[in-house]
Amino acid sequence: MSIPRFWRNIKSRYDLIGKQCKSCKSIYFPPRNFCPKCRRIGELEDYKLKGKGEVVTYTIIRTPPDGFDMVSPYIMGIVELEEGPMLTTQIVDADVNEIYIGMPVERVFRKIGEDGDAGLIYYGYKFRPAPKEE
């Protein structure tokens, strides 16, 4: 990904900063510039997500895209956050045999990829199994 395109959303990528619509209170992640429900511009403000959620569905990527050969096979999933939004994420620190729909997960900060040996390192969120609530 180009540097400006990565950088522009660095807060969302690093710290799960989404958006909330001031009028309808809908929370969006990935962030949107425009509330699709209210369709009013300038009505969205930053909303920090806690990074806790549950696996809605998942897959194990066995044929990785370029740049992901070293991590393959890896789990990708859709996670529904406690605040409501769903996002696509890699799920780490979990064995491919232990993942299940409904698994509680929490965000973790990891390397997403890098632009070769000399280029930028892309950091961002991934999710891992969350410790069981007492």
Partner: peptide, 16 residues
């Protein structure tokens, strides 16, 4: 460290 970890990711987790 895992393949997607480095001094920066470790620092962030510890800082959080």
């Amino acid at each position: 460290a895992g393949i997607d970890e480095d001094a920066a990711t470790i620092a962030v987790e510890a800082a959080r």
